[in-house]
Amino acid sequence: MAELDDIIHQPLRLKIMAALNALPAATGLEFSRLKKLTGATDGNLGAHIETLAKAGYVQVDKAFVGKKPQTTVTATAAGRGAFARHVATLQEIIAGKQS
């Protein structure tokens, strides 16, 4: 019986992973765009990205574009796998295979 992934299941982290997973592999989203998409605040988003990064589900890259710092978040292969399993578990719950 598959288990829900506690790290991904938190609502904001689920949104972050869903957004990153919608992109082609190795393509990331800028922090500001992720903030707009999820509707999160800077601090909240930063904290949850850190949790996902510690779990190895996302990779965070910081660079300077001109003089502006830019943070890009990308889902790792492990993160994509964990997200796919999490979605499959949700679908199993709906189908009544788990409760």
Binding site: L4, A18, G96
Partner: peptide, 17 residues
């Protein structure tokens, strides 16, 4: 574990994003 209503809500959130 969550129930099917919560699971549906989570999948709807994913679709939305």
């Amino acid at each position: 574990m969550i129930d099917s209503r919560e699971a549906s809500a989570a999948l709807a959130d994913i679709d939305d994003i």
